[in-house]
């Protein structure tokens, strides 16, 4: 019932996500986060979205994970905050379990259990056509958002040298 590749990818992604939050050093957490991004790209490839998988690898792993690693290097401290979060951690786990069970029940009780017998996925060239014709406004707005984010990040992180 369950594919081997799917099971392995699921285990890798979930465990890396947990490690990203729970590892003692933040650098290990950042590298575990990059690994979970790779796992998600693997899922995209399993879902016949190879273009999107490569896009995810290039942007998330090649850019965002590198950015996070840069910042983690610069924000290092010698001693770390001891985790005195006993009550908070139990509450957090409880909230997470409630969310998971609630959403899981929604998924399970709905009628979305269909299996598609290998219908051809649309070619990825349609993505470009769609972005440039149907979603052109979102595309231009995205460009402006990215430009302003870059300018804002540079302004915020600039060292004031007197």
């Amino acid at each position: 019932m369950v594919d081997v590749a799917f099971a392995v990818l699921a285990v890798i992604t979930v465990i890396s996500a947990i490690l990203a939050l729970e590892a003692k050093e933040v650098v290990y957490g950042a590298i575990a986060l990059a690994l979970s991004f790779v796992g998600i790209a693997g899922f995209f490839a399993l879902l016949d979205a190879v273009f999107l998988a490569m896009f995810q690898l290039t942007v998330y792993v090649g850019a965002i994970a590198v950015l996070i690693l840069f910042t983690v290097m610069l924000v290092r401290r010698e001693q770390w905050l001891k985790a005195k979060e006993g009550v908070h951690r139990a509450a957090g786990v409880l909230v997470a379990i409630v969310v998971a069970l609630g959403l899981g029940y929604l998924v399970y009780a709905s009628t979305i259990a269909t299996v598609i017998p290998s219908v051809e996925q649309a070619p990825f060239t349609l993505i470009g056509a769609q972005i440039l014709t149907e979603y052109w406004l979102a595309f231009i707005t995205l460009a402006l958002v990215l430009a302003s984010a870059v300018i804002g990040a540079v302004v915020l992180a600039k060292l004031e040298r007197d």
């Binding site: 650098v27 590298i31 990059a34 790209a41 190879v50 273009f51 490569m54 896009f55 690898l57 290039t58 792993v61 090649g62 850019a63 994970a65 590198v66 690693l69 290097m73 070619p123 990825f124």
Partner: peptide, 25 residues
Amino acid sequence: RSDVGVLVIFAVLGFFPITALMAAW
């Protein structure tokens, strides 16, 4: 034979900064 061969190269190139930083750190 992949229809997105060029993107595979980009994706692979994006990994090298991470491994260099792992080695250095």
